[in-house]
Amino acid sequence: MTTDATRDAGAPPFVTEGYKPPKATHKARVLPGFRLSLGITITYLSLIVLIPLAALLARPWEHGLDGVWQAISDPRVVASLRLTFGTAFAAAVVNLFAGLVVAWVLTRYEFPGKSLLDALVDLPFALPTAVAGVSLCSMYAANGWIGSLFAPLGIKIAYTPLGIFVALIFVGLPFIVRSVQPVLAEFDAEVEEAAQTLGASPMQTAIRVILPSLLPALLTGFSLAFARAVGEYGSVIFIAGNMPFVSEITPLLIVIKLEEFDYAGAAAVAVAMLALSFLSLLVINGIQLLLSKRGRA
């Protein structure tokens, strides 16, 4: 019997009876599955992400550097890039403030309907972009719920850059809230109390003590919201109006070029957009690094 747990009088200790050493195997890693899991990971990532992206990066060069330059310096492309990055930036800035307030309210106050409000924050994540797109468009159109309020003032929202901006605000909010919320919830209450014992007003405490420690999280949220807004398609194209030079976003321009079978041009603009957005993220990460070097992260 191999399972004798207590020692019978006189019997040998309950060790190793019936233990037959198995055939010797030498394993460097204790946990199994390294080769299998790494194999799956690398194969899958290569097939789904790397090879397709390589196809994208390789494509623009078929008409040479000149061809690439021509494709991306086309005034229509430049106008679309300016519009895309400009509205994405503006929307992310607005969300920075709105998101901070929402995160603050959700972590600091207790009020009826709070969990509903909390769940609602994720709606833009969960709502398919096409649904958001058509709904925002009909709301902000001149005969829509909100558009009709502004129409008498001579302000058009749908089918203008303002519409794009509004749609990107919808899309970006959760990124800021969900980045800031955990940091705010974990904020050491004693630090805050220390500030108060030193004579700081609640406002001073919030601005001088809490806000600085939120900066890295705010920047993370900002960069996520910005990156998402730059690439956003579904919730924007309905409300944008898609007028060349005025309200035509870069992702749409890429699709248009593709539909005209201008693969090289589409790829060139796509690569330019990717490069610009990575550059922006790099700058934001750089700022974040600077902040963390000052001991705030």
Binding site: P52, A55, V230, G231, Y233, G234, P251, L258, Y263, A270
Partner: peptide, 12 residues
């Protein structure tokens, strides 16, 4: 961008 996630397949 999701659009890029689409066009890479067209390019292939």
């Amino acid at each position: 961008s999701p659009v890029i996630s689409g066009i890479v397949w067209v390019l292939l």
